[in-house]
């Protein structure tokens, strides 16, 4: 995934069975953001792979004051890259897990 300066990783082990997954997001390189992030804590949240979109979560993070409005695209892209990797892996190892 492209280095957006915002890191998103799994916050729990993914067994490929649940549609919701816990993710953790934090800022690795504040210089790549347009606005100044509130604090550089790691933000943990659950994401529904089937019903939700990265853009929705990114906007909720902006609403909650974690990021500046101008950074919604970077935050959404970082989440999207990680979610795509999770879904790609689930398709590869999914059958073995069932």
């Amino acid at each position: 995934a492209e280095d957006t300066g915002v890191r998103v990783e799994l916050a729990e082990e993914d067994h490929g069975r649940k549609s919701t997954i816990a993710l953790r997001l934090w800022v690795e390189d504040p210089k790549k953001l347009k606005g100044k992030p509130k604090d550089n804590g790691a933000i943990e949240f659950t994401f529904d792979l089937e019903k939700e979109t990265p853009d929705e979560v990114a906007q909720e993070m902006i609403d909650s004051g974690f990021f500046h409005e101008n950074d919604v695209k970077i935050v959404a892209k970082s989440i999207r890259d990680r979610v795509a990797l999770i879904q790609w892996r689930r398709e590869r190892i999914g059958p073995a897990l069932q």
Binding site: R7, W26, N40, E44, T46, E60, F66
Partner: peptide
Amino acid sequence: NSLTQVVHSAGRRFIVSPVPESRLRES
């Protein structure tokens, strides 16, 4: 190790915890 919690109006819970020092410098 302080944890803060923000619940968005749409109901999603965001839990903020300090980023482990090692992860901050990792690029």
